[in-house]
Amino acid sequence: MKNILPVLTVILALLVVWYASAFQLNKQWALDMAARQDRTMTTPQLIADTWAQDKPKLPAPHQIVVELWNTVALKKVTSKRSLVYHAWVTLSATLAGFGLGTVLGISLAVGIVYSRVMDRSVMPWVIASQTIPILAIAPMIIVVLNAVGVSGLLPKALISMYLSFFPIVVGMVKGLRSPSRMELDQMRTWNASGAQEFARLRLPASMPYLFASLKIAMAASLVGAIVGELPTGAVAGLGARLLAGSYYGQTIQIWSALFMAAAVAAAAVGLIGLIQRATLKRMGLDR
């Protein structure tokens, strides 16, 4: 872990910049308030005030930590005011979409690798599908699906799926094609059937590519779930917290939701990383 010192330095620098910006951005409001109440503020008072406002332009890090502690640890998990509850709502949609996207992505990749027609006709659309800003039409999908009678988890999961299948298709196509001509010929000399070639050579060879794609897909899936929550009228979920926070100017609430989302993303991606390491180790592929 020789990177720890530089990383800590960078994080420390970020914190310093953050406190300085919080002071700079919140200063005006504090001064206005003081002027209105006809009192002057000394510099230490001013600094303390900018770091402890109720609705600051930029909350100081410790305010966010306090808010996180209040909403994560001090509230019951089932309470609607608990951030854990909202994180779970988002995470369940994320995981459902991620699962669907993984299945769709892998099946498409198998089709593309084994069928020349699919390779030629479907692959370009897989790529084109990602230049469509799906997040932009997320509200429409949610509203339309609601109109048809599908609501709750599934619409969000569908958006997550759309975002997460793409990296998996691309990664798996690359991975399933990664065995060399020589290795494929070797399988043929062993009289391997198509299914055996797939199960014993192509699939194992694609694992490193699959895991790299899964990490990207998980991050994309979370973004999809969060954006999918925006148009539902801020009912539940991290996206709803963001929207509600922005309606009522609750910056601390927005930032705590953001940090929660970051933690969820880090945990999910980290979990895939652990599975990756264990799997590749068993396969003898780790470096």
Binding site: K215, A219, V223, I226, L242, L243, I254, L258, A265, V269
Partner: peptide, 15 residues
């Protein structure tokens, strides 16, 4: 780069 960066949109709109 792996975070849902889009979440800062409401904050930046406020700023």
């Amino acid at each position: 780069a792996a975070l849902p960066v889009i979440g800062i949109a409401p904050i930046l709109v406020m700023w």
